[in-house]
Amino acid sequence: MSDMKKEIEKPEIFHAVRDSIGDARESIQKLGGFFSETVRVMRVEESEAVFNALVRNISDLECFMEFIGELRDALRYYSGFGMAHDPMSSAETGLNLFQEMHKSLESRDWILLSDLIEYELCPILVKEDAWLGDLHERMQDHEGTGTARTT
């Protein structure tokens, strides 16, 4: 842990974490757009192309969630900059939503799945983006103080 702490404290690592948030925000905004478009088509067309697009979107979302997991690990060394958990990692929203999405995907209930994505997931993605924006801002402010506060 102490080796890791030293690594994390290095300014270049801090910069890398901070800069990755900008990329992540761009990704999540695009992903939100892709999900919205896929849902729009999914409500009226149950084709292989739509299904493939949905699978791609979900796979991209998983990549994003992996990134968020790693980011969360990294943030532990900075006391999370005093921020609460990100919306997607919140147990009451994220987990339930993904379970429901999984169920509707299994039962091929495309309307319910569309609803969950359009009215539940997409707003969370927007909140997640805002949370990342807030974090990015705090990291920039923190950098301005000259020291990365670690636990």
Binding site: V41, R43, I111, D115, E118
Partner: peptide, 20 residues
Amino acid sequence: RISLHSFYNPMKEACEWAGH
């Protein structure tokens, strides 16, 4: 196990259907 209309906004869904 099949939902026939949106549980959130079936009217909006119908507009999108016609738009499609």
